[in-house]
Design a protein around this nucleic acid. Structure first.
Length: 312
DNA sequence: GAGGGCCTGAAG
DNA sequence: CTTCAGGCCCTC
């Protein structure tokens, strides 16, 4: 399941075809061309020059000579392979672009979830791309801005980090790894994350992604680079898919939970569950209304706090 | 803002 | 056999 580091690895390899022309387009699975008739797609793309290969979040973007953009998303199982003609296509090959440099760019997708989309000049971006949050490495994403962004959203921090409108490119693997590195429990509500935690989380996200890029991505299942090689980042992971194995920091066995409907891996020692907040967000009337006023809260807390202070 | 649909191999 | 994972789009 390609996330930012895997897509970036592919993008860097595809720099090699920048400047080449797309000589022909073979659409073997029409459904892999989104939002456009496949024949129309083929006619529009054939003859175009690849001016630029860029990435936004998990999207790969080919800037074409006519100022249109060829957008590719690999979703979970998509692969882009660069291979010599006549090498034979792997199973589930859906689109083949023959390039002027002599290679073929092959789109393969076991699950048919990903695909291509052609955005004409000035055309509308797919919603996910249009509403995409900042890139994690964007210098304008300062710790202060990140803290404010977190506090402008409600919910569990893991759910927010997975939302591409918040920050671009994170998926299940790197969210779990970043939260572990920052020692934050995935169920922590965003409004319980202080400035220091937010700053640590941002730098954790960056170092986790940077390390994964330097290892050419993480391969558990289907991810491969354009040469069909798996990534080498899996041994560098601390918690993801390491249920029952010792935490690299404290040796506590890693635990698997479900958070926002997703399999989630944590170290229960390094990432303690946040305590429930004591101050509830009731309307102020509830504090004065005897029917709804919480009983014994102030006195109980006061007494335990004082006795604890005395005994220590 | 929530939830279904897409698709197939792996796991139960 | 059934269930599930996975990210995004689309409809409500």
């Amino acid at each position: 399941m390609p996330e930012l580091p895997e897509v970036e690895t592919i993008r860097r390899a595809l720099e090699a075809v920048r400047g080449e022309r797309i000589l022909s387009v073979d659409v073997r699975s029409p459904a892999m061309i989104r939002g456009m008739d496949p024949d129309e797609f083929r006619l529009a793309v054939e003859g175009e020059r690849i001016e630029e290969v860029s990435r936004r979040g998990k999207y790969l973007l080919f800037g074409l000579g006519s100022a249109s953009t060829l957008v590719c998303h690999l979703m979970m199982a998509g692969r882009l392979l660069l291979q010599a003609p006549g090498a034979g296509y792997p199973p589930h090959t859906h689109v083949v672009l023959a390039l002027s440099g002599g290679e073929e760019l092959v789109y393969q997708d076991l699950r048919h979830f990903g695909g291509f989309r052609l955005i004409p000049p000035g055309g509308r971006l797919p919603p996910g791309l249009a509403a995409m949050g900042p890139e994690p490495f964007d210098p304008s994403l300062t710790p202060v801005r990140f803290f404010r962004m977190l506090h402008s959203r409600r919910g569990k921090v893991k759910g927010i980090l997975l939302d591409q409108r918040f920050v671009a490119g994170l998926g299940n693997i790197y969210v779990d790894e970043s939260l572990f590195a920052a020692r934050i429990h995935p169920e922590t509500p965003t409004d319980r994350i202080g400035r220091e935690d937010a700053e640590r989380l941002l730098s954790s996200i960056r170092s986790v992604l940077q390390r994964a890029i330097s290892h050419r991505g993480t391969t558990f299942g289907t991810y491969r680079d354009v040469n069909g090689r798996p990534g080498e980042n899996a041994p560098a992971l601390s918690v993801f898919r390491r249920e029952g194995k010792p935490c690299p920091r404290c040796e506590t066995p890693i635990v698997k939970l479900r958070v926002v409907g997703r399999g989630t891996h944590i170290c229960p020692t390094c990432q303690p569950k946040p305590r429930r907040r004591r101050t509830s967000r009731r309307p102020s009337s509830s504090l004065t209304d005897p029917k709804t006023r919480p009983k014994r809260i102030s006195s109980a807390c006061g007494r335990t706090a004082r006795s604890r202070a005395r005994s220590t």
